[in-house]
Structure formats: structure tokens, C-alpha cells
Design a protein around this nucleic acid. Structure first.
Lengths: 217, 217
DNA sequence: TCAATAGTGTCTTTAAGACAATATTTT
DNA sequence: AAAATATTGTCTTAAAGACACTATTGA
């Protein structure tokens, strides 16, 4: 299996301002009885067809400086949802404007985004990188059961570095309540079958899994 | 010198809703030409007399669930400013409704707050505790020059734990670009004068200064 | 010289980093 | 048997934790 790549879901804007640009899915709060969290779920569903109610989702920050949107001082509350590898959005549906883009292409500017969405992606990526160290967030990138190789690929993909599998195995299994062995095994195309793990229930990693220094230049 | 205590600035609300309750300083955005960051500085100045433009200030999060404010779905964008020990707000001024309250009194519920401000304080405290590990945020709690004892008291006060001064001295001075010796010395009432340090310019602590496990039960 | 505070040194334990070898599967 | 992947183990180095002692001041 090749290495996992950390992607972000983008849509192509259909309307001005910035029609045709790539952007994060989003929209405006509806009526007064909708909280910001629900609005985030609704907008994601409307624009990409994804239901994040079963995913890890957390608020990133609010963006409300003047000039970030030509319509005036628009206040955006950004959320980050985390999911394991998902299928491509299906053309011809509600989600046909959506696509998964490697975060590196966004961070580096190879894909440019509308408004200040580049900054929002940066903040989200840094949030994810940081929480991988001290929380079990990495499991949100995995299915309910997973192999340690898959878990390692999450860390490598998000941190953008290579980790030694032997040291990773030892470290991960030494953190109390991080992962827990389930009896079964996953059979791959070739090679020795991998043992399956699930969450050990712990939310805080202690001692933390500290990323190598190279990750932030 | 006795241990430092981590405080939060609260005001007594003068108007309904929740008149008379303790609350975080805040208010509404003014006109369309004011960004959220500037609004935070303005409200802090108006309600407490503090000028945070020279302080460390960062956004915490946005709070916008229904039911958090009786006036409807009010969206609050919370900011956290960090300062070294400050004088008591002076009675008879704009700031006379403001006071410094130990965060423990808020977290424990001994002092109860209006709206969902308890949650906001919790989030801010956790943000500070967490950033002390991997960033030089602790220096924002110190004057421009400081002693290592003072720095240790910041960590102890924010984390709510005791640290061994010998291990702390060694650890702090081993982190590249964290602190830097300045030639001079601070003379206290009694005892050996302490060497003064200043920021070493680094913003990221690597290796991190990990808090002991007891801090989060 | 005593009380108070600052700072250094040493030993032990634990975790991280760098490696090589063995195990279990499919083809 | 060969290729592919998973897993375990060892040695070295670095960091954390637990200690006791020395240094420099004011009273």
C-alpha cells in the first residue's frame, strides 16, 4: 500500500464573489434557531453531500477582519471535520463541484483558494498536526478498526514526515489507553496479515507523541 | 516571594441580561469598518481600562449555540490576552467594575459567571496550559526581563502543579532560543540576587516542556 | 551567623533514535 | 522460493525525575 495523503475537501464556487475559484464549503447561518455547529453540518451536507454528524468535528476559529470578503465585514466561523479516506464526490450530484485536494497543494499555493481560505486551511492543518501529538485525533482519520501501519500513515501524512515503523509500534503501544488489540486480522493482497486495533478509549496521550523537529521549518 | 496565581479579569455586569453577575468583558461589534480583533481590544479598553495592543492576544473560539443568551442566537468571538501581574483596577474609574479573580475560583464554580462564560474561561485556560508546552507563551506572563524563578511560577500557576526548580532550570536553559541571559541581576528583599533573562526569540519550544500528568484528571 | 533565595551537580529511570532480524502471508 | 508486508528485539543516546549541596545576598 502506498503512503496516505492528507487531503482537504474543496468546492468550486458557482457564484460571485470569486465564482470559479476553489473554496472551502460554507454558507450563511439560516434562521435564529440554528446554532453555528448545526449550520456547519448543514452547509457541508448541502455543498458536498457529506454527513459529518458521525465524524470528529471541531471548531477552528472565527475570521472577521475587514477586507476578507468584498461584501463587507463577513464573519466566518470555520470548522474542521476529520474522516478516513473517502470516495471521490460523484459527478452529476449535489456534490459534483466538490473534490479532495492534497493539503500540500493548498499550503504551497499550487492550488489557490478564494477569500482568506488559504489561511483557514493553514490553521486547520496546524491544529491537526498539533492535536496528533497530545490527543487521539489520529484515530478520527482511521476506520473503527485499523492496523498500526495505517495509523502510522496518518501520522506521516498529516505531519509530512517519515517515521520509523519499529519505533512507532513501540511508542504507540506504550501509551496507555491509546490503542487496543482486537482479535482479528486484516488480510491484504500480499504479505503477512496485520493485526487490527481499535481505540483504547483515551482522549489524551500521555506521554505525548512528539513530532520530529523537521515538520515546522 | 509567594507563588504566583493565575487570574482572569472579570467585570460585574451593569445591565440586563444577567445584571450583577460576573462576566468576561465584551460587547458588540460597532460599525462595518471594525474587524473582530480591533473590537476585542476596544471592548477590553472600554470595560476595564486595559490596553492590550502591546500584550499577547489571540482568538480562542466563537460561541454561537442557541440558548446561550436570552436575547437570541448571539455569536460571541472570544479572545484571550495575556499579561504579567497587573495592578488592581482602580475604583471610581471606568474600570471600577473590573477585578482579577483566580481562575481556580471560576473553574471550580466558587465564582459563577454569566451566560456560558464559564465554558469560555475553561477553554482559555486549557489553551494557555497547552501552549505553555510547545510555545514561548509563558514569556507573555512575564515582564520583558524576568528571573527563572518567576518563569517557573508562571508554569506552576498556569498548570496548577509544583515543579522541581533544579530540573526546571536545566530544562528551560536547554531549549534552544527560549530564554537568554541578560547581564544584570535583580536584587530582592532578601537572599541571593537572581540573574535576569529575556526572550531568546524562539516561538516554538523544541523539545517541548511537557506538563506532568496530574494537571488533567 | 542566620535566614532567605539562587544556582549547580549527580545519579537513576525512562523514553527516543538508530539500527537488523524474524514471521506470516500470497504468488 | 521469492516478494511483500508485519512484527519483535537490541544497543545507544537523550531527556526526565529525584535527590543534596554550594553560593550570595540582607538583616
Amino acid at each position: 500500500m502506498r503512503a496516505s495523503v492528507f487531503h482537504v475537501l474543496l468546492i468550486e464556487r458557482g457564484e460571485d464573489p470569486q465564482a470559479g475559484m476553489q473554496a472551502l464549503p460554507g454558507g450563511f447561518l439560516s434562521n435564529e434557531t440554528e446554532g453555528v455547529h448545526d449550520a456547519a453540518l448543514r452547509e457541508l451536507r448541502e455543498e458536498s453531500g457529506l454527513d459529518a454528524s458521525e465524524l470528529h468535528i471541531e471548531q477552528l476559529a472565527a475570521y472577521g477582519e475587514v477586507g476578507r470578503d468584498p461584501r463587507g465585514r463577513v464573519l466566518s466561523v470555520a470548522y474542521m471535520a476529520v474522516a478516513p479516506g473517502l470516495p471521490e464526490p460523484i459527478a452529476g450530484t449535489d456534490a459534483s463541484d466538490a473534490s479532495w485536494v492534497p493539503v500540500d497543494d493548498v499550503l504551497s499555493g499550487r492550488v489557490s483558494l478564494a477569500f482568506d481560505h488559504w489561511q483557514i486551511v493553514c490553521d486547520g492543518v496546524e491544529r491537526a498536526r498539533s492535536k496528533l501529538e497530545r490527543t487521539s485525533l489520529a484515530l478520527a482519520f482511521c476506520d473503527r478498526t485499523f492496523t498500526l501501519t495505517e495509523l502510522q500513515q496518518v501520522y506521516e501524512g498529516v505531519w509530512g514526515c517519515q517515521l520509523d515503523p519499529r519505533n512507532f509500534y513501540r511508542k504507540v503501544q506504550s501509551i496507555p489507553r491509546f490503542v487496543e488489540l482486537v482479535g482479528t486480522v486484516r488480510r491484504a493482497a500480499a504479505g503477512r496479515p496485520a493485526r487490527l486495533f481499535r481505540s483504547g478509549g483515551g482522549k489524551v496521550l500521555y506521554p505525548p507523541l512528539v513530532r520530529p523537529v523537521s515538520s515546522e521549518p
